[in-house]
Design a protein around this nucleic acid. Structure first.
Length: 937
RNA sequence: GCCUUGGUGGCGGAAUUGGUAGACGCGCUGGAUUCAAAAUCCAGUGCUGGCAACAGCGUGUGGGUUCGAUUCCCACCCAAGGUACCA
């Protein structure tokens, strides 16, 4: 008989809810600890066993920290704006808010069954107007801000205006789009209001600009760079094309360097930092200008290897390069036009799949080398990207493999500028142990030194300077969708104006359809009430629109990452209606101490959230620069899909063992129809999907054996395991511990329900420690020394494991302890009481029950964590130094029950000792079994 | 191609960072209990040979350092994730 987990779990979940056991208040005289999970998008499919993995781990830490005397903030909420609810709305006409509400309800039920210690009084939902009001407010703050590179921080736009009024752009170093505009103070004063607005828009941290965006026709929206994976949309895998559109953007590029440097103080996983570094893509080098012969034009290139400047034998421009036409000679014109046209037609995808193909065309024009003044031909090639650097490169075939390949293909000269290096077969790209040759004043210099000298020389003749470029682009912030935060902006004469703060939230309007309008406007274009009345400061009907006081509102909405870029601050003071969180709450909780979530958010959410936090910090809205001190990426739990094998064009399915050498089509079947021994329930299958009813199954040993494959858990692969089913069968405590037991938290691992019986057995055994048959019995007698040793060993191990986040091994430690105590027939209160507290973070329900059976009236949550007594931890062995012939020194680890003399005698008398001590042989020795363990030099 | 992480029994995974490899769990084998089954308990279980004591081999492969290597160094192979004509 197992312990009555069902009764116990229901009882204590109700108790916690009623007593608000996990509600947290601030301030408090306890030290604070903030442990947070990345909040989920509540999808219609509900939770599968993979979702709670991180929640269980963070819950264990939260409960552990409470026992340790911390005031623990452990909240949960929902990232509830998102595509699926909108697509469901398009199909059914049901408002996404209704779908979302229903999904949240289901999520909550599932989460509650697992006994999490969330403080639900602080729940947030990004789609709730009382929440997105502040998302809109932060948008407005970003709009009214610019980035001062001199002070390296974001500042109010008023400060910029003041500067412009007094000095114009003189002495201004601000983040801006490509070419920083310049004006004098007089110019500024001469501008009309509208001109000033247009001018300022180029500095704002959120700005409206004609940008080349990733347009996904299938989804009918633009996507941020991180939402495009290998040329197709991350969601749905639809093709994505480049398109120019007027869009809101966030000037994240202004923060590139700080995002890069900020890692130093962050305890985040190295691979994740690396991903963000790659994404930001900082390259240090120089920008160099080449004059075009017989033209006033200059071609500016960016290079990371200015030291190879004397190896330049041609320039290459991207096909989209701005004034290709202008410099092309008449004789080359036809060829260039054809090439440019053809390159434009090649999709992003084609270009990527044909990376090996070399193509290009000569423009007929020549540029002049900025130092030698030699003529170098100007080519066009599609290996040069318009979007990176300047869209032009100086080609150094001897030092860059792509330049080398291009030169070889078109028979262009290759000049070797490396000392003692052969470049006849391939380019020499290494910087180490490389000396420059054939390069005038650089001859004989190593790379670093040559780089420095060239930059100096270029600066002197005005043809270049040191430069840094980033791969990180500004983040497009407009989405042509309904189910997102409205952008709090209206337009006067085409110029964006902010909705006043006190009028927020700007709530989503009702629409008749969730699709774009026939003329291509976003779904909000369907709203009949979507105009802003500046006299009443409220949303009014579109037909009131005139050109004086009522203006059109922005129809785009914000992207998914807007609401998730600051939510961790909202939990600190979730119901504040005067600010996104009070100064006091922010000052108390500061930042997340432990953040758990998947690594798939590395270049999206986590980068944007860091950016917004830096911004809020610059404006003194938050007290810390980094929002999460420590971050852990939990690995995905994978499903084990099951397959049956169909012979093509038949309804015959072969058992796995019969498939060898035959052509078969694997078909997913529901994993719940398959036994642990991979045997298929054929009758069940026929009921599951009718088309299997007439199928024939070829068996082996009278069984149909399915094939197995580990894949991501997904409804369409029929490999989803529902945590509710596990809770029904084994209980939540077992599920919690089993998920931890499965392996290291960071690692991806397949789910296998079969193994859960081990954990289930353990909890039953643990229960039986307190029970004699059906009755609860504990002894108040003094426990044996051995029992105490077991207890304290376990306390030390489990504590250390939680601190190091090695939760799988701590589950093992509990199992070992329980087995040992069972063998000892130990049922002593002095042992079992601390053990309950130790186990409570992992299996809270059973521990609450046992704790109350022991006579405690308070929740076990209030108990303080046991501390290991070192007296019980001492090892049986001790180290003694021993010398031999005055030359060699050994350390003997041996039983403390032997005296030093006894040991020395034992060593000397041991027959093998001479061999060990003659200097050449192993020092590890067992003189007396289990006593003398080791000899080390 | 580059970057990152990893490779240990039939399986999931341990190993105090250089000291008896395989903890703990699953599975498997045998036994107890049972009319029988489930559940539970006990014993065994890296591989090869042997009735056995025991011997040999074993942490992706090949070298190296060391008295001693899963652990450190070099080269390679494989897998997963990220990323890409990024100049």
């Amino acid at each position: 008989m197992g312990y009555p987990f069902q009764y116990i779990e229901e009882k204590w979940q109700a108790f916690w809810a009623e007593k608000q056991t996990y509600k947290v208040e601030q301030p408090s005289d306890k030290p604070k600890f903030y442990v947070l999970d990345m909040f989920p998008y509540p999808s219609g499919a509900g939770l599968h066993v993979g979702h709670p993995l991180g929640y269980i781990a963070s819950d264990i830490v939260a409960r552990y920290k409470r026992h340790k005397g911390f005031n623990v903030l452990h909240p949960q909420g929902y990232d509830s704006f998102g595509l699926p609810a909108e697509q469901y709305a398009i199909q059914t006409g049901q408002h996404p808010a209704i779908t979302t509400e229903a999904n949240i309800k289901r999520y909550r039920e599932q989460l509650d069954r697992m006994g999490f210690s969330f403080d639900w009084s602080r729940e947030v939902r990004t789609s709730d107007p009382s929440y997105y009001r502040w998302t809109q407010c932060i948008f407005s703050l970003l709009f009214d801000a610019w980035y001062d590179k001199k002070e390296d921080k974001a500042r109010p736009i008023d400060a910029l205006i003041q500067h412009l009024e007094r000095f114009g752009t003189t002495d201004l170093n601000a983040a801006c789009d490509d070419d920083t505009p310049s004006c004098t103070a007089a110019d500024w004063h001469g501008m009309s209001v509208e001109e000033k607005q247009i001018f300022l828009l180029r500095f704002r941290l959120t700005y409206l600009a004609e940008t080349e965006v990733n347009w996904c026709p299938a989804l009918g929206t633009v996507l941020a760079n991180d939402e495009v994976v290998q040329g197709v949309s991350e969601r749905g895998g639809h093709p994505v094309e480049r398109k120019k559109m007027k869009q809101w953007s966030m000037r994240i590029s202004a923060f590139a360097d700080r995002l890069l440097k900020g890692f130093d103080s962050l305890d985040w996983p190295e691979p994740l930092k690396e991903m963000q570094r790659n994404w930001i893509g900082k390259s240090v080098g120089a920008s160099v200008r080449f004059c075009v012969e017989n033209s006033h034009r200059e071609i500016e290139v960016f290079t990371t290897r200015p030291d190879t400047l004397f190896g330049v034998t041609f320039l290459t421009l991207a096909p989209e390069y701005e004034w290709v036409n202008e410099i092309t000679t008449p004789s080359q014109k036809a060829e260039v036009d054809a090439y440019v046209k053809q390159a434009a037609q090649r999709s992003e995808r084609e270009r990527m799949s044909e990376v090996d193909r070399i193509s290009g065309v000569f423009t007929g024009a020549f540029a002049l080398h900025p130092i030698t003044n030699e003529k170098v031909p100007i080519w066009i090639g599609d290996y040069v990207l318009a979007g990176y650097g300047t869209g032009a490169v100086m080609a150094v075939p001897c030092g860059d493999q792509r330049d080398f390949d291009f030169a070889t293909h078109f028979d262009l000269p290759i000049k070797n500028i490396f000392k003692n290096v052969d470049v006849s077969e391939a380019a020499h790209t290494s910087k180490e142990n490389t000396r420059i040759a054939n390069s005038d004043f650089l001859d004989g210099l190593p790379v670093a030194k040559a780089t420095q000298k060239v930059i100096e020389a270029l600066a002197k003749n005005g043809m270049g300077e040191g430069a840094t470029t980033y791969r990180l682009r500004d983040a497009v912030f407009s989405r042509q969708r309904y189910w997102g935060e409205p952008i709090p902006v209206y337009y006067v004469n085409g110029q964006p104006q902010l909705i006043p703060d006190e009028c927020l939230p700007l709530e989503l309007p009702k629409v008749s359809k969730y699709l774009p309008t026939p003329d291509g406007a976003p779904p909000l274009g369907n709203a009949t009430e979507w105009a802003w009345d500046t006299t009443q400061n409220k949303v009014v009907s579109n037909d009131k629109m005139d050109n004086k006081t009522v203006f059109p509102l922005e129809k785009n909405t914000m992207p998914g990452w807007a609401g998730s870029s600051w939510y961790f601050n909202r939990y600190m003071d979730a119901h504040n209606s005067d600010a996104f969180a009070s100064k006091e709450a922010l000052a108390y909780w500061k930042e997340v101490d432990l953040y758990l979530g998947g690594s798939e958010h590395a270049t999206g959410h986590l980068l944007y959230a860091r950016f917004w936090q830096y911004f809020l910090y610059d404006f003194d809205f938050v007290p810390v620069e980094n929002f999460a001190k420590k971050l852990i990426n939990q690995g995905m739990i994978l499903g084990e899909s099951a397959f049956v094998y169909r012979i093509p064009d038949t309804q015959t399915y072969l058992s796995k063992g019969l498939c060898k050498g035959k052509k078969v089509i694997p078909v997913h079947v529901d994993v719940s129809l398959v036994s642990a021994q991979n045997e298929l329930d054929i009758e069940g299958l026929k009921k599951w999907q009718p088309h299997f009813a007439e199928a024939t199954f070829k068996l082996e040993d009278e069984k149909y054996i399915v094939g197995r494959e580990v894949e991501k858990m997904s409804k369409s692969k029929y490999n989803v395991v529902n945590p509710d089913a596990i809770c029904d069968q084994y209980g939540a405590d077992t599920l919690r511990m089993y998920e931890m037991f499965l392996g290291p938290i960071e690692q991806a691992k397949p789910w296998n329900t079969a193994g859960i019986s081990g954990v289930s057995n353990f909890l039953n055994k643990f229960w039986r420690l307190f029970h004699n048959g059906e009755t609860f019995v504990v002894s108040d007698d003094k426990p044996t020394k051995e029992s105490l040793r077991i207890l304290h060993k376990t306390i030390a191990k489990v504590t250390q494991d939680i601190e190091q986040f090695s939760l799988n091994t701590s589950v093992s430690a509990f199992m070992i302890a329980t087995n040992e105590l069972t063998n000892q027939k130990c049922n002593h209160r002095e042992i079992l009481e601390p053990l309950i507290v130790l186990l409570a973070p992992f299996a809270p329900h059973i521990c609450e029950e046992l704790w109350s059976l022991l006579g405690h009236n308070e929740s076990v949550t209030t108990a303080s964590y046991p501390v290991a007594n070192p007296d019980y931890l001492q090892d049986d062995t001790k180290a003694y130094p021993i010398s031999f012939n005055g030359k060699m020194r050994f350390t003997l680890e041996l039983s403390t029950s032997l005296s030093k003399d006894e040991i020395e005698t034992a060593v000397m008398q041991e027959e093998r000792t001479q061999t060990y001590l003659d200097g050449k042989t192993p020092k590890k020795v067992i003189v007396v079994p289990n006593k003398i363990v080791n000899i080390v030099v």
